[in-house]
């Protein structure tokens, strides 16, 4: 139920189950999870390795569909979307920061940030926006650097800028501050705060870092595919 201080969720999950079948075995990575992600919310997902955090993030990002249960986007069951619509929805609504960043090694920082909008035929606007985002994450002086000329923290900031190029409503990050120093971690957290207050972007981040979890509005604790506490 939406109340005055609780806006409609962007994304909602009910009794979400995701099973993987490998060989003869079935692994239940998520075992009946409920969730709701609201605009401007900052949610931290924590849990031991193998507890289903990445699986949950993939479902939130429409990269995957549940084996059973429902994931709803704007009231619609996403499992009814065809591939094309899921792809378009991802492009419009979701920004991903992947655990290993996955920057393209032969492109500059700026070109990497532009990648999600490369096919849009708006080269001028895309370049302006990408430059602006890199400046915002503090890499205004590293636009033309290749990924291997950047530190881990800088790569991560490029990955963050790339996630933001399409102005998503939902930013998903898989252990974004995993092995970063505190200062870099702080600057990323500050950026998340800005995005939430300025653009109502919801942020869901998987983390092992209690420091990040403390900064979140809400912590989802996963153990063996179930939400605890």
């Amino acid at each position: 139920m939406a109340t005055a201080d609780e806006p409609e969720p962007i994304l909602r999950g009910q009794d979400v189950v995701r099973e993987y079948r490998t060989g003869g075995q079935t692994v239940r990575a998520l075992d009946g999870v409920d969730f709701a992600i609201r605009p401007a919310e900052f949610v931290a997902v924590v849990g031991p390795s193998g507890s289903g955090k990445s699986t949950l993030l993939n479902l939130l990002g429409l990269l995957d569909v549940p084996t059973s249960g429902r994931v709803e986007l704007g009231g619609e069951d996403v499992s009814t979307f065809d591939q094309g619509r899921r792809t378009r929805t991802r492009k419009r609504d979701v920004g991903f920061i992947f655990q290993s960043y996955y920057l393209i090694p032969t492109l500059t920082a700026l070109e990497n940030v532009e990648v999600p909008r490369l096919l849009d035929r708006t080269p001028v606007e895309t370049r302006e926006r990408a430059t602006e985002l890199l400046e915002r994450v503090g890499l205004g002086d590293r636009l033309d650097h290749a990924p291997d000329e950047l530190s881990g923290g800088q790569k991560q900031r490029v990955a963050t800028a790339r996630a933001l190029i399409n102005d998503p409503n939902l930013l998903l990050a898989d252990e974004p501050t995993g092995n970063l120093d505190r200062d870099t971690g702080d600057s990323i957290l500050d950026l998340f705060d800005d995005l939430r207050t300025e653009q109502d972007v919801a942020v869901v981040t998987v983390t092992h870092d209690e420091y990040v979890a403390d900064a979140a509005d809400r912590v989802v604790r996963l153990i063996d595919g179930e939400v605890r506490g």
């Binding site: 990002g61 792809t87 393209i104 999600p116």
Partner: peptide, 16 residues
């Protein structure tokens, strides 16, 4: 492989 996975994740269609 991973790079193409990223492209698909950030909204490149299969056709693209």
């Amino acid at each position: 492989r991973e790079e193409i996975g990223v492209l698909r994740a950030v909204g490149y269609s299969r056709g693209a």
